[in-house]
């Protein structure tokens, strides 16, 4: 059996005196979609941000395609935090889509997608534009390529955000509550893009509150609480399981929220 694409072992992280990740293990095999759920403050977003080094972790190991993310040096031996240049090279192969979209406000949709291609991948502008237009077409925005983010709806902005991430041909795509800031009627258009990517075998780690989506797209579901991984397994099994008190109470609150 080959190693999983993302391997997280015993990762610990504190903010000040608060322990937000308390020895988390997680494997993400190539082509799978791992969905992380849990109440706010459970550490799921922090875990996701550690995978592309937007947060540092204090202990343990996160490897993407065999490369340790936060540190260089021998495992067990002395480790040094990676430099900004090293991190930039590592991050270029890990895509991320944000809750608040975070598009570059001064660039049009197509320029948002092109920036990484030209400046990080060193692609000639014409080729980068072609690739960016291809991806904007894929997310259904071929009519909006020259619009600035301020001229796009939330759902459209988020689809640009997805195009920007996948155009870099990442090994793994991280989705951080990408529908939480959207009006309910715009959630569908964003999730259908993600479904398409999953169907094509894109490896993803997804933090979400959309349980239907988690069940449909996730190949593996992980429930986190207080910096611990509480449960893990196929979505249907996890969502029906009632042997864990915390999971059950979390799920009942989520159901309630959706009904309301």
């Amino acid at each position: 059996m080959t190693d999983p694409l993302v391997r997280i072992t015993q990762v610990k992280k504190s903010f000040g005196s608060t322990l937000v990740l308390d020895g988390v293990d997680l494997d993400v095999p190539k082509g799978e979609v791992v969905v992380v759920i849990g109440p706010s403050g459970s550490g799921k977003t922090t875990l996701l941000r550690c995978i592309n080094a937007l947060e540092t972790y204090d202990d343990g190991s996160i490897k993407v395609d065999g490369v340790e993310i936060g540190f260089r040096g021998e495992p067990g031996g002395p480790r040094k935090r990676r430099s900004d240049g090293e991190l930039a090279r590592i991050r270029a192969d890990i895509g991320m889509v944000f809750q608040q979209f975070n598009l570059f406000p001064h660039l049009t949709a197509v320029e948002n997608v092109m920036l990484g291609l030209t400046k990080v991948r060193g692609m000639p502008p014409a080729q980068a534009r072609e690739k960016a237009l291809h991806w904007l077409d894929r997310v259904g925005l071929s009519q909006k390529t020259a619009n600035l983010p301020s001229q796009l709806s939330g759902g459209q902005q988020q689809r640009v955000g997805i195009a920007r991430a996948v155009a870099m041909d990442p090994k793994v795509l991280l989705l951080d509550e990408i529908t939480s800031a959207l009006d309910p009627e715009l959630v569908g258009e964003v999730l259908s893009v993600v479904r398409g990517l999953a169907a094509e075998g894109m490896t993803m780690v997804v933090v979400t509150h959309e349980m239907t989506f988690a069940r449909d797209v996730g190949t593996q579901l992980v429930f986190m609480d207080h910096g611990h991984k509480i449960a893990e397994g196929p979505p249907n099994e996890i969502l029906r399981r009632s042997d864990n008190e915390r999971l059950r109470s979390f799920l009942s609150r989520i159901e309630f929220r959706q009904d309301g």
């Binding site: 937007l54 240049g85 930039a88 270029a92 890990i94 944000f98 570059f104 990080v120 870099m168």
Partner: peptide, 27 residues
């Protein structure tokens, strides 16, 4: 300049200098 936008610059692999030139300064 929103920290999220700077994170987005990091996430696509821009170095600190590139983030300044292409994201922070123009914003």
């Amino acid at each position: 300049v929103s920290p999220g936008v700077i994170d987005a610059g990091k996430a696509i692999g821009l170095t600190a200098w590139q983030r300044f030139a292409y994201v922070r300064f123009p914003t």
